[in-house]
């Protein structure tokens, strides 16, 4: 597939998915009315404007950003670990966030959050950040940070955090247990403008910062020494990359729960379509992740409306068959 055409197609698809997310929902709005509300032409009814501005728009923007950040982070992690099976949760961020969120749900009780962010979100971010920091410190010696050790330390820290989560689940009441389990499935129903603002700042950094490392990531695929011999500051690239991914995924997970599949499989789908060159892979993954999550969330809201399905369930149901189809159709994808 021609990379340029693929990326333009993805951008158009993302735009369409974004519009669909505003149009479809428990109450169906006309595309014209939605556009009217967005552009303040005065043609839309006040109810339509309210639904679009207060409910659907922040949710669609949050979904777009979460999808983009998870997918681009996954692509970067697979490059850094030189392993197509890596995903952003590999450095412990998701398991840590899960433990943090569970702690807040079980012990936080009715404590209120701050600035529109719930206590659960903040605890999740703290847990994710702490886990990544531990993994990084464990894998760093005087001679530098070993990516292989990081992978193993990530597994160990994830296991520890998972054990903590299980322990909390064991002592949780039925209501708490349900909240923990729903949080782990991920969901974007908590979207509001203050959450969007927080994520937009972080996502801006991630979506601009990671593509700037694209050439270094290409070289890193050859091996760390090879990248160094090609003149890249491998040590600095590593910690900037891990920092950006931890921040982006940490905030995404804190605001939208653990949405699986996007970070692992979207980069694969894109790589199968346009190859492994990070200069194209990173932006294309961001677009594809945003598009997939927008479609998944729109379906999650509408399939059995007014009840919402967990969005993580939809991303897997939508993405997996597509991925399997692509896998069957390619020769060059030797792992």
């Amino acid at each position: 597939m021609k990379p340029a055409g693929f990326i333009v197609g993805l951008a158009l698809a993302t735009l369409l998915a974004f519009m669909a997310a505003l149009v479809f929902g428990a109450i169906r709005l006309g595309p014209v009315a939605v556009l009217g509300a967005l552009l303040h032409t005065g043609t839309a009814s006040s109810k339509t404007t309210l639904i679009v501005e207060a409910i659907r728009l922040p949710r669609a923007v949050l979904t777009l950003l979460v999808g983009a950040v998870l997918a681009i982070s996954g692509a970067a992690m697979q490059g850094l670990f030189r392993n197509p099976l890596a995903d952003p949760s590999l450095i412990g961020v998701t398991a840590g966030a899960s433990a943090g969120a569970s702690l807040a749900i079980v012990f936080g009780g009715a404590l209120a959050g701050w600035a529109g962010l719930s206590l659960v979100s903040m605890a999740a971010f703290a847990g994710g950040g702490l886990a990544v920091l531990l993994v990084y410190v464990l894998a760093t010696r005087a001679s530098g940070t070993s990516v292989a050790t990081m992978l193993l330390a990530g597994i160990a820290i994830s296991a520890l955090a998972g054990a903590l989560t299980s322990l909390l689940e064991f002592y949780a009441t039925n209501d708490m247990l349900r909240r923990i389990s729903l949080w782990q499935m991920g969901g974007l129903e908590g979207a509001n403008w203050s959450r969007v603002t927080v994520l937009a700042v972080v996502a801006g950094g991630v979506l601009v910062g990671l593509p700037m490392l694209a050439r270094a990531l290409n070289a890193l695929l050859l091996g760390e020494s090879e990248a160094r011999h090609l003149g890249f500051a491998v040590g600095r690239v590593k910690y900037v990359l891990i920092g950006l991914v931890a921040l982006g995924v940490g905030v995404s997970v804190a605001l939208a729960g653990a949405i699986t599949f996007v970070g692992l499989v979207v980069p694969h789908i894109v790589r199968l379509a346009i190859g492994p060159d990070h200069r194209r892979l990173l932006p294309a993954s961001a677009l594809a992740g945003a598009c997939l999550l927008l479609v998944a969330d729109t379906l999650a809201r509408t399939v059995i409306a007014p009840t919402e399905l967990p969005v993580g369930l939809l991303t897997s149901v939508l993405g997996a068959p597509f991925f399997i189809l692509l896998l069957r159709g390619t020769r060059d994808y030797a792992l």
Partner: peptide, 8 residues
């Protein structure tokens, strides 16, 4: 060299 991604 451990390159495992399908670069041309």
């Amino acid at each position: 060299s451990p390159l495992a991604f399908p670069f041309s």
